[in-house]
């Protein structure tokens, strides 16, 4: 389905995850972050978002452990940056599909 986020038309699934990561940009990220009650994306947020997108573009399936070993952040900080479900919420903001890993 179609959704307009911050003036940009994008394709999303029923839960609002972008279905094409190429349609993403930083304004979209900011708007989705607000929907998830993250008022401001700090430099650290962006670092994590960029890292997630880079991994995904290499076809790597993401999980919490990989984020913890990324060198970009650790698990504790990851939970603080994206409260209430960090991998889910960070993926949504980063324009990626909903994570499918059990880890």
């Amino acid at each position: 389905m179609n959704k307009t986020i911050n003036g940009h038309d994008v394709d999303v699934d029923a839960e609002g995850y972008l279905t094409d990561m190429e349609q993403w940009n930083r304004e979209i990220a900011q708007e989705i972050a607000k929907e998830l009650d993250i008022d401001e994306l700090t430099d650290k947020h962006w670092e994590v978002i960029d890292w997630l997108r880079e991994q995904k573009s290499q076809g790597i399936e993401l999980n919490i452990r990989k984020v913890g070993n990324s060198g970009v952040t650790d698990i504790k900080e990851f939970y603080q940056l994206f409260p209430g479900g960090p991998l889910k919420n960070a993926s949504k903001i980063a324009g990626l599909n909903k994570p499918t890993s059990c880890l």
């Binding site: 452990r65 913890g68 698990i75 504790k76 939970y79 960090p86 880890l103």
Partner: peptide
Amino acid sequence: LDIPPVSEFLDIIKASG
């Protein structure tokens, strides 16, 4: 499959709150 050993899994559970 990226499933961590026991001690690391405990660390992960703790770090995640």
